[in-house]
């Protein structure tokens, strides 16, 4: 069915070309387009802020990864738990995080959701089911399985999803978690955003397995490889996996093939790939794909322009707000060590 490849020179769209793509109505897709564009513009704005020296540390953007987050948000319920990686702005925004609070957090400003203590790598908001983005590769994956275990212990109709990269597949904790999740039929979805690079190293240079979705087959887990850049395909796969999880049929592993259009992190020199490779991948990136899909379905360019203009305004407002926002009270440095 698929002709998968770990090589970044293979277009992302090549995976799972046979999957159904017309599962959502135009009315459903329009807000998804809006969200995808919002994520894109927030990320681009953050990169600009980083370039101007306003953001310290490591900031990883999800430019090119938007379909995974937007498809997920449409497929799951708000009360479903989510954990993800340091590359987690897109999941949080798609679940409804206010861009103002998000940008404030990245800048270390007081109105940030974690008062500036977490920053770019630790996006979180339990009221949106966002149970933590993690700076340690793979560490958030057992957390999601534990949340699924909690739902099972309590008898709740709630599932968990966790996002991780291709590089995380080589962490031992992942396999410990896969085994237990399958053995205990936990209601959890493992979503691998395979952008085919771990930091600056293509996984084809380090992996002895060429198709990541095959790893979990040894545990007896349902798994598939999909075109992670087609939001409808992502939506469809997660919807089906969620139904399995809710029905007590256990976990599903989804490998969504994607491509990171920006550097691994702000300031990445990108000496490890050619401009031609990036250019070739632009034809398959999720925002352009959805744009074309909507035009094909008869939505006018004017309507899409209008949506984009609104988003531009919202994001600019959020950036201005964050730049003006106050720093946290220095007393905050000492709080939240223990819950009292």
């Amino acid at each position: 069915m698929t002709e998968p490849s770990l090589k970044a020179s293979v277009p992302s769209a090549k995976a799972a070309v046979a999957e159904p793509t017309a599962v959502l109505s135009t009315e459903q897709l329009l807000p998804m387009y809006r969200m995808m564009f919002l994520i894109r513009r927030v990320e681009e704005s953050l990169l600009e802020l980083a370039e101007s020296g306003k953001i310290g540390g490591a900031m990883h953007t999800a430019i090119g990864h938007e379909a995974a987050a937007v498809g997920m948000a449409a497929a799951l319920r708000k009360e479903d738990y989510l954990t993800c990686t340091y590359r987690g702005h897109h999941h949080s925004l798609a679940r409804g995080m206010d861009p103002k609070r998000a940008i404030c957090e990245v800048l270390g400003k007081a109105p940030g959701f974690a008062k500036g203590k977490g920053g770019s790598m630790h996006f979180v908001d339990p009221s949106l089911g966002l149970m933590g983005a993690n700076g340690i590769v793979g560490a958030q994956v057992p957390h999601a399985a534990g949340m699924a275990l909690a739902a099972k212990i309590r008898g709740e109709d709630r599932i968990a999803i966790t996002f991780f990269g291709d590089g995380a597949m080589y962490q031992g904790v992942m396999h410990e978690t896969f085994n237990m999740a399958q053995k205990w039929k936990l209601p959890v979805i493992f979503y691998c955003e395979n952008n085919r690079y771990s930091e600056m190293t293509p996984i084809s240079r380090t992996s002895s397995v060429s198709d990541l979705y095959l790893f979990v087959r040894a545990y007896g887990m349902e798994s598939m490889q999909i075109d992670g850049n087609d939001v409808e395909v992502v939506y469809d796969a997660i919807t089906k996996a969620a139904a399995r999880a809710r029905a007590g049929e256990g976990p599903t592993f989804i490998e969504g093939i994607t491509y990171r259009l920006a550097g691994h992190m702000a300031g990445d020199l990108e000496t490890y790939r050619t401009p031609e490779e990036i250019e070739m991948q632009r034809a398959y990136e999720p925002l352009a794909r959805l744009h074309q899909k909507l035009l094909d379905r008869g939505v006018s360019e004017e309507e899409l322009n209008k949506i984009r203009a609104e988003v531009e305004e919202e994001v600019q407002e959020a950036v201005d707000y964050a730049l003006e926002a106050p720093w946290p009270d220095i007393a905050e440095a000492y709080t939240d060590v223990y819950k009292v």
Binding site: V141, P142, G146, A150
Partner: peptide, 10 residues
């Protein structure tokens, strides 16, 4: 690692 992490998640 796995069950410690799952306990933390729970």
């Amino acid at each position: 690692q796995g069950f410690m992490g799952m306990a933390i998640g729970a």
